[in-house]
Design a protein around this nucleic acid. Structure first.
Lengths: 152, 152
DNA sequence: CTCATAGTGGACACCGTATGTCCACTAACT
DNA sequence: AGTTAGTGGACATACGGTGTCCACTATGAG
């Protein structure tokens, strides 16, 4: 099970946008800042926009901004925007295939799917409990100041 | 982020082996029972053996068994055996690339990686807290009886 | 009003990994 | 001895994540 690297990029970008506090950053600026492929990073940022996490300003002096305050954007919001909301564990209901499907009446969700989903919920809850602003608080003030300076 | 389907197969097989209580099942039996590709299922079972979750008996009347009691095998054990122990979130340290890398001294792990890993730990803990025997308890007795009958 | 800038939407190519197959070999039971 | 079943590894395939590109639209600057 592997999380796409777009998530890491998106989180870093959200942190930067949080620090920039409403002033738009272009995808090109962010791509150069993090040394990431510009076209792909832009695609990731658009996913954030599509999901209401970020907002886009078009035209000259445009760019991307957070759609709301960093305190009200959780890591879960960012992960969901970039990776989608599909659960990691997909129950293919193999109980229903082959001979095992003829064993008897199925009583709702199988125990395995239930157990896996339960674990996944704790994961999502842990992500939802942490905000972009929290991340910012855990970062040294020097990095913050220099990031802002580098992107202004 | 998506969990491989081998995990679901492995969990179902572990449940069956738990019920069979030491009596070996062949990969062919399990494959037919669940209508899964025999060669691939066997590969998955071998991953369980390699990780000490299951044991293999060779020769006639051989097959696979759980290596220990179902109560002492957690979902995490099975997931780790099949999917590996790599964390889902890989920190590529994009802070260190491009211009952002020149911003200042890096003080240990970046906040993002730390936050993601923290969430993942809760996930793993939730998986470790549930055993194969727990799953068995949450399944109707009829299914259990008929599964045993079908594979004997 | 015109031009340059920047995001939009979608199609497309590439590539690594999960998925799935196969075979010669070994071990064990009858 | 012969049959069964797991072993180890190489191999083939399909799919999704990664990454690129382009024509288009919207916006601000001069």
């Amino acid at each position: 099970m592997r999380m796409g690297k777009g998530v890491e990029a998106a989180l870093h970008c959200c942190l930067v946008m949080h620090w920039l506090d409403g002033r738009p950053v272009t995808s090109a600026q962010l791509a150069e800042f993090f040394d990431l492929p510009p076209a792909y990073l832009q695609k990731t940022l658009r996913a954030l926009v599509a999901d209401g996490v970020a907002e886009a300003v078009r035209g000259q002096s445009g760019g991307f901004t957070l759609a709301r305050s960093g305190a009200s954007i959780s890591l879960m919001d960012v992960v969901a925007a970039v990776e989608g909301r599909e659960p990691a564990f997909h129950c293919e209901e193999i109980r229903l295939a082959g001979r095992s499907g003829t064993l008897g009446p199925r009583s709702g969700q199988c125990a395995i799917a239930h157990a896996m989903n339960r674990a996944e919920l704790t994961y999502r809850a842990a992500l939802a409990a942490q905000s972009i602003a929290d991340l910012a608080d855990q970062t040294g003030p020097g990095v913050r100041a220099r990031t802002i300076a580098a992107l202004t």
